[in-house]
Simulated assay, not measured.
Amino acid sequence: MTTAPAEPLDVLVAGPVFFDVVFTGLPTAPRPGTEVWAQGMGTAPGGIANLAVPAARLGLRTGMAAGFGDDAYADWLWTVLAEQEGVDLSASRRYRHWHTSVTVSMASGRDRAMVTHGHPDPEPTGLLLAEAPAARAVVTELVPAGEAGGWWRPMAQAGTLVFADAAWDPSGAWDADLHERLDGCYAFTPNAAEALAYTRMADPAEAAQELAEHVPLVVVTLGGDGALAVEGGREVRVEPLDVDAIDATGAGDVFAAALVTGTLHGWPLEQRLRFATLCSGLAVQHFGGSLAAPGWGDIADWWDATVAAARTGEPAARATADRYEFLTDVLPGRALARVRRAEATIARLSDAQQGTTAPAAPTLRTR
C-alpha cells in the first residue's frame, strides 16, 4: 500500500478494477468460425477506475480502494492510475498469485457485447477501507438487499457526502424498501429504467419525486433525453448534448464524477446537471471508458468552438452557448492538462504535459 494522503480527499471510490480491451467499428458481431476486423482498438483501466479517472481529470483529489494482482496488467494499471492520472491508491492493495480481471468489449453499431474473465477480489472492500482515508464525498453502488455493504456509513456519519448509484437487479425483484438502504446517502443517481423499477411508476419525473423522499438529491439519467433531478422539492430537467457517439462505455461514471465535482464546488443544480451532461457527451466521442473522460482542456476547447460557432449566428450553437454560459466563470484558472486516450496497445505513459492554466474564457454576455 502507498502512503496515506496528507490532506482529506475530495472523493473516494471503491470496487473491483479491470483491464479493459475495447474494439470499435465492428462491421458485424463476431460469429463462431469467422474472423472480424475492428476499425479501432484501445486499452484502458476499467471497473471502478471508470469513476476515479474522470474525477481526477476534473481536478478532484481522488482516492481509489481496489485489489490489484501481481501480473503485468496490474503493473500497467497501477502506474497509469497513480502516476499518469494522479489517483491516490493508499487504500488499494496488491495481492500475490492473483491475476487481473480482463474485459473485452466489442462495439457494433450502437450496441456492444462484453467478455470478462476474472475472480472475486481476495478481500472485501470493507477490509480495504477499515481505516478509510477522509474524503469530502464517496461514490458507491447501492447494494442489493441481502448483500454485505455499507462501508461508507461511518464516513457519512462524519459528514461525507455519499452519492449512491443503482445496481441492476438481475432477479427482477427490485426491492422497493429503499429507506434503510439509502439511509445516510446524500444523492441517488439511477437511470430511468432503474428509477421506474424501484418505484413501480411509469413516469421518470414521478419516480424521481418518490425517490426524493429518501435522499436530499435524486438525479435520473434519461439517455438520449438528457437528465432530470429533484432537490428540495424542485425539479430540474436538461436536454442531452448533440454529439456523434462512438462508445458509451463509462459514460454514466463520467456523469457521476462531474456531478460530484459541481456539488463540491457549490454550483446550482441546473449547472451541475448541464456540466455532467457535457462531460459525458464529450466522453462518448472517444472509446476506452476511463481514458475517454475529458479534462479541463477538452472542456475549454469545446467552449471555445461553441462560442465561435454561436458568433456566426448559427441558432443551435447560440442556444447551446446560452445554456452553458456559466463556463465563462468556471473555466478561468483551471489547469488545461492534455489527457491520454486509449491506445491499441498496453501503452507507455502519456507524454502529455500539464500545460497552462485557462485564461479568461470567451463569453456571449452583453451585460
Rank of each mutant, 00 (worst) to 15 (best):
D121W: 03
T249E: 06
C279W: 00
A308P: 08
H99Y: 11
Q271V: 05
L217I: 04
R234N: 09
H119I: 08
M1I: 00
D351H: 07
F19T: 07
P332V: 14
G172L: 06
R112W: 00
A321G: 09
G252W: 10
D247M: 01
A82E: 08
R323Q: 15
H286D: 02
V143R: 15
W303Q: 06
R237G: 15
T261L: 14
L77Y: 10
D88T: 00
R112F: 02
Y324K: 08
A132Y: 03
V87Y: 00
V339C: 02
G42H: 01
G33H: 10
A193F: 05
A6E: 04
W151G: 02
D244Y: 03
T160I: 07
G288H: 02
L211G: 07
G288W: 01
A167C: 13
A193E: 13
D183H: 15
P362G: 13
D121P: 06
M155S: 13
A305T: 05
D20C: 04
R110D: 13
D175Q: 11
V243D: 03
V87M: 01
L161W: 07
A229Q: 06
A212M: 01
L222G: 12
R200M: 12
M155H: 09
S108Y: 05
V21F: 14
A192V: 07
A132N: 09
G223M: 14
L264Q: 12
H214P: 07
E147M: 10
L264M: 11
R181K: 13
L60E: 02
V236G: 07
L222I: 13
W37L: 15
V260E: 10
G47M: 06
A56S: 15
G25D: 14
R272T: 03
F68S: 03
L269H: 08
A293W: 01
M1H: 03
D177W: 03
P133N: 00
G355W: 11
D169Y: 05
P216E: 04
A245P: 06
A44R: 00
P294Q: 11
T34Y: 12
G159N: 10
L89V: 00
E270R: 08
L128F: 02
R57I: 01
E239T: 15
G295Q: 00
R136Y: 05
G47H: 04
G59W: 10
T312H: 00
A167W: 09
A251G: 09
G47W: 03
P170M: 02
V22Y: 02
P204Q: 04
T312D: 00
G223F: 14
G46V: 12
D322L: 07
L241Q: 14
L81S: 04
G288E: 01
P27A: 10
A308K: 13
W76C: 05
S108K: 04
V36F: 15
P294C: 12
G159A: 12
S350N: 06
E325Q: 15
A205W: 05
R112D: 04
L331R: 03
D244L: 06
G223W: 11
G289F: 01
